[in-house]
Each structure stands twice: as structure tokens, then as C-alpha cells.
Design a binder for these strands. Structure first.
Lengths: 333, 333
DNA sequence: CTGTTAGCGCCTTCAC
DNA sequence: GTGAAGGCGCTAACAG
């Protein structure tokens, strides 16, 4: 494995100084065309490629971003990642993708490793960290964008989903369809978005003078399996329930499965509303009524926000809110 | 933004040399316990964190890998990425995730950028590059693992899916069920795996003395939409076809939709077999019969292979083959 | 327009 | 056990 071609090699071969080569490589002006031509020719001939590492050390910029998600296998985050990568690529940045598996230890570990890698910024999705832990973890980063989490600190932007509104919209939709006993498959207990959606649910129920039974609300892991078990439990113990507001589409699909197993028809016996509108939603039977979240755009806007701050051209915008849109399909017409 | 704490700061504060600090940080032996203790204490107090960049420049190792996929929003690759990241994380590596969008220009561009970032290795999925282009693109990388592509070069490993076998298995399954007019929704024309699956299909058909009509084979983009249109076209012009072998599950779901639109029952009028067994497969109606590909394992094994070579402990294994398993569900019993 | 001088923060190789 | 010098490959800040 021959020694790497360095800038010094090019400089020597072209009879110029390091700086001249550097200027040509970085397309800075102030180089005569003939010289530039010659340098370029040598670069080509020697197959020289600048070392990103060395450049990063000198400039203190790496051209990399960190994207931290709970689980890239979850379609919500894989699409978000896609949107993020799209903008990053356009702007010449690369993205480190990290999964936390919903574990706070691992979240801290990946944030640490991203800091060690000296990324220029971080996008952190659905952090499970407490306020102070979170603050400490991102304190040394140049800039951070939180997805669906807020922290009123300098240098920390947010891209929010209006979860409370989703919770309200979903519940209202069922109310209008005549449902009274509406259950809530609330997702993980420590999920902030879950808490906000639950608040929306409660607001609407109260406004309608309905007091949800404690048993109507069940927490569960945000997966198909989790939704299935939770729905099973809820519907078995509370047969009066005729509708379910679900934490996300995976949970809703789980509910669909549970209903099928219990011989309950959807939406005949039980109406189901999901959240997110992942691909799955319109492909299952019955197709899911759900709150569509612009996952791709959230990813791309988060990067946009991050890059604006990195490049210093403050737009003043530190927060951005996405409001989900109710998509009515067969599971809750 | 205060100046970063450096090794020199720690050294000064602890009254030792840079080297001593370095040794403590890297847990090298040859440091007396009291000194080490003192250094650690200062590191803690000052909040010192080693600079990954500087270390990389000195060691020529970055502790990063590149993962190149066509589209992370595609569940096949998002799960593969998950598996890859899992092993990488365990071994202390970070992963750059890059999407090519199936464009060769972009594939070359991201490979270039990964080289510039000096990743320690690359995993490249379903490259659309020609043999020589590919060879050139990965020539300067320490080691590369190709997913579902082979290149008999030094320093290039492969994790293959036995696509030909899948094509055979799927076709055979339909043949055994009594189908004779079996169509093929073959995916993108330039997909190597598509070509191999098609070969498997042809082999089995020939062995059964069946000559597929040219119109029974239609290429399409590997998405739901693509499968739907292709199935529409195929079934409209060739009503004699009673079964479809599909490039992947998304295409198969598209076929399901087309059948529904055309008033054809599945599997009654048309049997459908997918490929990959993504989550979707068992959740659509009817549930898809499909060839399960161990996506997560492919990702994790690819990284394993990569890391073995990087760390030099050659196991001799440069290639690994995954054979898909037929999962029989309702769409083709 | 081009070159020189200093680092960026750490590790390797040798001395002591 | 510990330290001093030199270098990894590049760029910023000044000269000329």
C-alpha cells in the first residue's frame, strides 16, 4: 500500500508552494490561470485527493452531522433520515446515523461519540433523556436541533410535531362519528409526544363531558406487537369501548390484528385511528385512518435549520412546528 | 465559545508531559498508578475529551465506516442499516449513511466523499456501477464489502443473496400449485439481483417444458406504484396468466392492488409471490407468500466481515451467501 | 499573485 | 516510568 499522495508531492512536482496548491484545490481566487492549470494537471496525474481529516483539523470543521434516532428500522425514522440526508448531501455534508434503541445509556453514548468525532451539528430525535442530562449532553456541540422536544437554551433549535393537536383531531373525529367510549393506546409512558397526544385526547373528552375510564388508557411499546397486546387487554376488559386512538400506525396495526383475533370487525365494532401515516397505513386492511406527519420534510427542515445556524446566517428561526393532517380511510370513516 | 480543552492543558495542570496524558487516555501500560490517578482526576475536572480528528490524523484510522444504499426509506435497506449499525456500535465504529437514489452519478459522488472522509471501510449495497467504474471507485479504500455484487479483486468482500435460488423456489412453488402461465414482474432492468432471480425463473420454467410468453415478463421500478402499473399492463394484455413472481414485496403489493382494481381475486384468480419479507408482507391482505431475506443479518455480517479485514485478522472468508427462505402465506398457498 | 511561518491536537520513536 | 522532538496533511495569517 503505497504512501498516500500529499499536497507536498503536488507542490514539488508543480514547482509551487503548498499554499498555491491549497488555493487551487479550494478554488480560492488570486491564482493565475496558467499556474492553476499546471497544478490541476499535476493533481490529476498524481491522483491527489485532499485529506478531509487534515483539513478538518486545520479548519475545525468536519462537514459531518450526527443524526440520532431511536430505530432506523422504524419507517418513521428511516424516512426522516432520508429527508435529512437529502439536504445534507446537497450542501456537501455527510451524516452519521446512530440508533439509540430507546435506551438512555446508549443515547448518551452515541452523543458522546458524535462529539468525539467533532460533528458540526446534531439532530436528535425523540430523546428519552431528562432535561439536565440532555442539556449536558449537547452542551459542547456547536448547534443541535431537537426533533419533537424543546429546550429553551441558546444554540438549540427544535422541529416540533403538534402532537396535542393530533390527539385532539383524532379524538374529535371519532366523537363526531358518534363514539363515546374511546380508548387510548398511548405508547411508551416516557414518550413526550405520547404525553402530548394524550393531553389532546383528554382535552377533547373533557370538553365533551366524557370522563374516560382509567382502563380505557393503556401504554404500550410503539410496535405492532405492543399494540396488539395492549388492544387485546383493553378490549377484553372494557368491551364498552368502540373506538381506539393509537400512538402510531404500528400500534394501530397491532390493534387491527387484535380485533381480527377477537372477532371484532373494524370499523363496525371498533374504529381505529393511527398516527404518522407510514406506507403501511394505506396498505393494510382496512386502510388506516391516521394523522399524517410529514416525516421526510421534518428531516430535511431539521438539517436546513441546522445548516443555517452553522453557517451563521441566522434567520431568527429556532423553532418550527409541523401540524399533522387527518387522513380519513376505512378504519374510522 | 471557550477554547477547547486540549491534552496540553491537562498535561500542564497535572505536571506531567503530553505523553503521559496520552498514555493514560489510551490505557497503555507503563504508568504508575498514582500518576495515572492524578491525570484522570485532572481530565475529569477540566472536562477533557480527546479530539477524534487529531487522533485520526496521527493514526490514519478514523473509526468510521461508510454504508451506501439506494434508499434508506426502503425498508429492506433501513433494516440492513440497522443491523450494520448494531455491530459497528458494539465495535466502536460510527457509520456514514449515504443514499444513491439508484443514480450512478450520485453513487460515484458519495463514494468519493467517503474516501475524502477517510472511512476505514465501506459497505456498498446494490451498486449500479459497471465493473470498471466500481473497481476504480473503491480502489483507494482499505477494504470494501459489496452486498449482492461480486468483484474478484483483492480487498473486496461480498455478502450475497442467493437470488437465483429464490427465483427457482418461488417459481417452483407456483408450479407445484398447478400454475402454468406464470408471469414475472422483474424489477429494474439493470438490477443484478433482478437478473439472477429472472434466471432462476427461466431455469425452472424450462425444466418444466414451459416456454414463457415474452409478454409475461415485465420490468418495473421496485416500488408499489411500479408493481401496480406493471401488473396492470401484464394482466390486461395476458389474461391467461394465473400467477406472478415479483421482484420484491413492494412490487408484489402493487400487484395486489392492481388485482383488486381489476376485480381479480388473490389467490383465486392470480397467485402472487413477493421477495424479501419486509414487515408489510404479513400485514397486507392477503398476506404475502414471499422469500424471506435476512436483511438485518446481512447488514451485521457485512460489518463483521469488514471489521475482520480492517483489524487484519483474516479469517480467509471473503464471501458469504444468504439463501432466502420461502414463507408461505395466503397470497400463494 | 505567490510563498513563509505557525499551528490544528495527537501519536510514534526514541532517549533518559 | 516518563519526557522531548518530530510529524500526520492541511490552512490561516501574514509577508513580499
Amino acid at each position: 500500500m503505497g504512501r498516500r499522495v500529499t499536497m507536498a508531492d503536488v507542490a514539488r512536482e508543480a514547482n509551487v508552494s503548498l499554499m498555491t496548491v491549497s488555493r487551487v484545490v479550494n478554488r480560492k481566487e488570486g491564482i493565475s490561470e496558467p499556474t492553476a492549470q499546471r497544478v490541476r494537471e499535476v493533481i490529476e496525474r498524481l491522483g491527489y485527493r485532499p485529506s478531509g481529516i487534515a483539513r478538518s483539523l486545520a479548519t475545525r470543521r468536519t462537514g459531518t452531522l450526527g443524526l440520532v434516532v431511536p430505530d432506523n428500522a422504524n419507517s418513521f425514522f428511516s424516512v426522516l433520515a432520508r429527508g435529512a440526508e437529502h439536504v445534507a448531501y446537497q450542501e456537501g455534508y455527510s451524516i452519521f446515523l446512530c440508533n439509540t434503541e430507546e435506551e438512555t445509556d446508549r443515547e448518551l453514548a452515541v452523543l458522546q461519540s458524535l462529539e468525539d468525532k467533532e460533528v458540526d451539528g446534531i439532530i436528535l430525535c425523540s430523546s428519552r433523556l431528562g432535561k439536565d442530562e440532555l442539556r449536558g449532553a449537547v452542551a459542547h456541540l456547536p448547534f443541535t436541533v431537537l426533533v419533537n422536544r424543546r429546550l429553551d437554551d441558546e444554540g438549540i433549535g427544535s422541529v416540533m410535531i403538534d402532537d396535542e393537536h393530533s390527539g385532539q383531531t383524532a379524538t374529535q373525529h371519532l366523537l363526531k362519528a358518534g363514539h363515546r367510549a374511546i380508548g387510548l393506546l398511548a405508547g411508551p409512558l416516557n414518550s413526550y409526544s405520547g404525553q402530548r397526544r394524550a393531553r389532546g385526547y383528554h382535552t377533547v373528552m373533557q370538553a365533551a363531558n366524557l370522563e374516560p375510564d382509567l382502563g380505557w388508557i393503556v401504554n404500550c411499546p410503539p410496535k405492532v406487537e405492543g399494540g396488539m397486546q395492549a388492544a387485546h387487554k383493553l378490549l377484553a376488559t372494557h368491551p364498552e369501548v368502540t373506538a381506539l386512538v393509537c400512538y402510531n400506525d404500528l400500534v394501530a396495526v397491532g390493534a387491527l390484528k387484535a380485533c381480527a383475533q377477537m372477532g371484532l370487525s373494524v370499523p363496525g365494532d371498533v374504529a381505529v385511528v393511527g398516527h404518522d401515516d407510514i406506507e403501511l397505513a394505506e396498505l393494510v386492511t382496512p386502510a388506516l385512518t391516521t394523522c399524517r406527519v410529514a416525516r421526510y420534510e421534518i428531516g430535511s427542515q431539521a438539517v436546513q435549520l441546522l445548516l443555517e445556524h452553522i453557517s451563521g446566517c441566522q434567520t431568527g428561526c429556532e423553532e418550527m412546528v409541523f401540524r399533522p393532517e387527518l387522513i380519513v380511510r376505512a378504519s374510522a370513516p
